[in-house]
Write a protein that binds this DNA or RNA. Structure first.
Length: 960
RNA sequence: GCUGGAGUGGUGAAAUGGUAGACACGCCUGCCUUAGGAGCAGGUCCCUUCGGGGGUGGAGGUUCAAGUCCUCUCUCCAGCACCA
């Protein structure tokens, strides 16, 4: 039989016209009967072209909107445009068109395209961030934040893109390059507007916990916030060569001491020098002072500071070799040991994190270790490592582990695996003998080598806890580590104890192999300790730490902070949000300056504070708005002579931080939204978006929302409940789509061929929508979906007035159950597969009841809204709703399933299957199973000793 | 390096601890033909002496039963990264 191919163009148009005529998708926000459900997706930037990624974002979220509506929810499913932004300005520069006109035209094109997808969007709630009726309220909210000290101005080093001629947020810089154009980013000091997001760091962190988000999303936010707990410690400076400077104060009158932030105050006894960031205020003070004697090598210091200032952040990172300069004549006093330690400046210390100064503990910090190695600074170990596994009441024991090296090889004792495998040489320390002597004697006895030279004796001891099975006793071995070199292979006959003979082999193995083969934690520590020296940051027992010796470092942490007069502090990586942009096509910052230069917010009656139109927006490094005569005249007219405008515009992330609030009341001229509706509709039930917005947009809007919450402007502390990150549609070549690669899929051509429904379904079928994955676009897939839809279409011919059959009932029960749960979980792929199974089942009988077919159409409606609508209009009866999209989603049916097929295992291996009633008793099941030849054969001579029977699931027979 | 996520056919992928690979793509065989980018039927993890045996990156473990839980390990992806 030749399948009929339906005319999707006609069907789509008719269906869309019908929906508009019925006003199906205009949500009555005040409806009090149905439960509200706010479904949101990230509104797009109007770039002008609608690519397959937009389909993936909008059309698939639409599946869920239709589903929830059919479930009787009052669904708000709005759309808008994030229409301020750089591309409009770039296009304007390129084509000489006004950014506004360019943007408006793009939005017009995109609206038509989005409609063609068959989305059930409520366009009556549309917002555009570049529309004065919207940005009036962006500005108003900004002034509210300003009034509550959440928006402020300060001079700051900002990231500056020389190509785009604008300041970038930290997030817009990737690997030291502008995320937009890839140009190397520079640092500039400018007075900038900031939003105080760091004040909300802790709440952004704690409120994250209960949110039902995927762990990776939460983790990305946590990493971004970057909380670390530690202490601020004070190091007093001393000017040894010039004690008269000990009263020295910096410009602000601060005494000569340096505050450091550290997460490891427990290691303060091991701090052997101090490092300041080159931009540290104290260094600046040294630079500025007239007195050349404060730092005797001032010119060298100044040169280093100037050199690092020239370097971009990227260059500083590229050069992993640590550089720095010592401040000669200045010493710091370690508050724990009271010893004088040198002070350095080095660019591996960042001015912007912590206090811009660190105490260097080279023994326990990799970076400090690297720096110390370069500058030959002393290491002081203050923690004895603990290895092995904790034991109860271990007995003390003194041990020695010796690493013997000779020509790139290490002397090992290779015991039988059950006796410990490969180890380095070791033994028990004798109380009256030097450890080195004991070790040499033991090595001689065990291996016969005599010509040994001690290279190093580890300063620290390793506390190794273990359980000796031979003695049935737990021990903690206080282990001395020794490093020997073999000078010659002079060797005598080993003098082994009787019980040791033949139990091990003496073997020289290359260092690398020894490292991988020696598994015992104590011995592998010893090896690493001598052969690949590095810092270690692990926990253990304090040593070289005065009164704290022998204590656990973690447990003594707080006491050490108190001991040195420090203060417990929490530090965050996240810094305040720089929101000023030296750009034209953005929301003007609604601030003006009086003749003295003080900032004042533009009063509400003058909002919206319009984007000027008489500007020169070719990049000059200044905000284009500075060239507007109108803006100057406006300020003079309203505020008076001598007043000046703010020229900067807001980062577009500010616009998008609250758009979901405006959807509720997009035309309100008197308020940013409606309090009653906010109460009813917040938080957003489900927010679907791209993983690229996990840290920026998502974090910013959470912050913004919390700030508004504190100002009693929104009713909830969190804006979004569920968050779903979707994946990425790749080009057919498996690479990310981009115009330059020429692998961009034009959806229009595919839609023209297979229809919007087929494209929607293909995208839905490609993989789970709630997991970020990468899916190469495959045209055959859309064709396959079309084939399926054609089958649904052809199936109509078999529809008759017969009653629903038992078979159909069972098929439907399964399909309803699966499509309901899977659609709910955004697992559209498996929901579609359930529909396919259903259709195949219906196809296999000669006739299909109208009831079964109608039910199929209802289940299909969210996925293929046009075709479902068309077929519905052909088969529906008087009682049915006019549109399939007004039909109720079926309840999951409790059908009396008459029989189930379940697997039969014998001794855990599948041998066959039986088809029995789900209520069948164990005896019946076993009886049926034994009748299956394969099962019978598998049991063979044996006897069934035990039966595991899970009705409807499995039957497992244990036979001997 | 740190953190998180993930490893299942040629591909996209399925599997409340209970018949591994559903549903598709692709491929193979056949049928039909008005020769199509069509439709239909069957096949498609590996080995097999056709009884079976093996198989979810690898090695162990828990369990009547493990892709799923636990331990170790390898690989890939993502985020962060000189953050003290």
């Amino acid at each position: 039989m030749k399948k009929e191919r339906f005319d999707h163009t006609a069907i789509e148009q008719t269906a869309q016209e019908k929906w508009e005529a019925l006003k199906l998708y205009e949500t009555d926000l005040t409806d009090s009967e149905k439960e509200p459900y706010y479904l949101l997706f990230e509104f797009p930037y109007p770039s002008g072209d609608l690519h397959i990624g937009h389909w993936y974002a909008f059309a698939l979220t639409d599946i869920f909107a239709r589903f929830k509506r059919m479930q009787g929810k009052n669904v708000l499913f709005p759309m808008g445009f994030d229409s301020f932004g750089l591309p409009a300005e770039n296009a304007a520069i390129k084509y000489g068109k006004s950014p506004e006109a360019w943007t408006l035209q793009n939005m017009e094109t995109m609206r038509a395209q989005v409609r063609s997808m068959g989305t059930s969007l409520d366009w009556s709630k549309e917002v555009m961030t570049s529309d004065p009726s919207y940005y009036k309220w962006t500005q108003w909210l900004f002034t509210k934040l300003y009034e509550h000290d959440l928006a402020y101005r300060k001079e700051a080093a900002v990231k500056w893109c020389p190509k785009d001629q604008t300041v970038l947020a930290n997030e817009q810089v990737n690997d030291g390059k502008c995320e937009r154009c890839g140009t190397e980013v520079e640092e500039r000091n400018l007075t900038q507007w900031f939003l105080a997001i760091s004040m909300y760091a802790e709440r952004l962190l704690t409120d994250l916990e209960p949110l039902p988000w995927r762990e990776e999303i939460k983790e990305a936010q946590r990493a971004w916030i970057g909380k670390s707990e530690g202490a601020k410690l004070s190091f007093t400076l001393s000017f040894s060569a010039h004690p008269e400077h000990n009263d020295w104060r910096d410009e602000d009158g601060n005494p000569a001491r340096i505050e450091v932030f550290t997460t490891r105050p427990d290691t303060v006894f091991g701090a052997t020098y101090i490092v300041l960031a080159p931009e540290h205020p104290w260094v600046r003070a040294v630079w500025d002072t007239e007195d050349d004697d404060v730092v005797s090598n001032k010119s060298e210091v100044v040169a280093y500071v100037a050199e690092t200032a020239k370097k971009s952040e990227r260059e500083r990172l590229e050069n992993k070799e640590k550089t720095g300069v010592r401040l000669e004549g200045v010493m710091a006093i370690n508050p724990a040991t009271k010893e004088e330690i040198p002070v350095y400046i080095a660019d591996y210390v960042l001015a912007s994190y912590g206090t811009g100064a660190v105490m260097a503990v080279p023994a326990h910090d990799e970076r400090d270790f690297a720096f110390a190695k370069t500058y030959n600074l002393p290491l002081k170990r203050v923690i004895d490592p603990v290895t092995g596994s904790p034991q109860e009441n271990p007995e003390d024991k003194a041990k020695i582990v010796a690493v013997v090296e000779h020509e790139g090889q290490v002397l090992t004792i290779n015991w039988k695996p059950e006796l410990g495998g490969r180890l380095s040489v070791g033994g028990t320390a004798e109380p009256d003998e030097d450890a080195a002597d004991t070790a040499m004697r033991e090595i001689k006895e065990e291996t016969g080598y005599t010509d040994l030279e001690l290279v190093e004796r580890a300063e620290e001891q390793v506390h190794h806890e273990y359980f000796a099975h031979s003695k049935n006793k737990a021990f903690v071995a206080h282990t001395t580590l020794l490093h020997f070199r073999l000078n010659s292979d002079a060797r005598i006959e080993p003098a082994l104890e009787e019980d040791e003979k033949g139990k091990f082999e003496v073997e020289w193995v290359p260092v690398a192999r020894a490292m991988s083969e020696i598994q015992d934690p104590l011995h592998s520590y010893a090896l690493a300790r001598f052969l690949t020296p590095s810092a270690y940051g692990d926990d253990g027992l304090l040593r070289n730490s005065g009164q704290f010796d022998g204590r656990s470092n973690r447990e003594a942490m707080n006491e050490i902070i108190d001991f040195v007069g420090g203060e417990r502090v929490t530090n965050y990586r996240m810094r305040d949000w720089s929101v000023g942009r030296q750009r034209y096509w953005g929301c003007p910052i609604p601030m003006v300056y009086d003749p003295e230069g003080n900032a004042h917010p533009v009063p509400q009656e003058h909002l919206p504070w319009l984007v000027p139109t008489d500007v020169e927006f070719t990049p000059t490094g200044k905000s284009p708005n500075a060239s507007s005569k109108e803006l100057h005249e406006r300020v003079t007219r309203i505020f008076g002579e001598g007043w000046t405008p703010e020229y900067d515009t807001l980062d577009a992330f500010v616009d998008s931080s609250w758009y979901f609030l405006r959807y509720l009341d997009p035309k309100d001229e008197h308020d940013f939204s409606d309090q009653g509706l906010l109460k009813k509709w917040l938080p957003v039930n489900r927010y679907s978006g791209g993983s690229e917005h996990t840290t920026m947009h998502l974090l910013y809007s959470r912050f913004f929302h919390k700030a508004l919450y504190d100002l009693a402007l929104v009713p909830t502390p969190e804006p979004f409940n569920e968050r779903m990150n979707r994946g990425l549609i790749l080009g057919p070549d498996g690479a990310k789509m981009s115009k330059s690669k020429g692998n961009v899929i034009n959806p229009d051509a595919v839609v023209a061929e297979h229809g919007a429904d087929a494209v929607r379904m293909y995208l839905a079928f490609i993989g789970p929508y709630n997991e970020p994955g990468n899916y190469p676009w495959n045209l055959d897939g859309a064709g396959a979906m079309r084939k399926f839809l054609d089958r649904v279409y052809s199936l109509k011919e078999k529809v008759g007035n017969e009653a629903l059959t038992e078979t159909e009932k069972n098929l439907l029960a399964k399909a309803v159950e699966k499509t309901t749960t899977d659609t709910e979980r955004f697992k559209f792929n498996t929901a579609i597969s359930a529909l396919m199974v259903l259709v195949r089942g219906l196809e296999s009988s000669p006739a299909v009841s109208r009831e079964a077919y109608s039910a199929l159409l209802v289940l299909l409606a969210p996925y293929a809204p046009h075709l479902a609508e068309h077929l519905w209009s052909e088969v529906r009866t008087e009682e049915d709703s006019e549109s399939v999209h007004q039909a109720a989603w079926p309840e999951v049916l409790e059908t009396a399933v008459s029989s189930v097929t379940l697997g039969v295992q014998v001794n855990g291996k599948r041998r066959g299957e039986i088809t029995i009633s789900p209520e069948a008793s164990e005896e019946e099941a076993v009886e049926a199973a034994k009748a299956v030849p394969e099962v019978f054969r598998a049991i063979g001579e044996g006897e069934v000793r035990k039966v595991v029977y899970v009705p409807g699931r499995i039957l497992n027979l244990m036979a001997s």
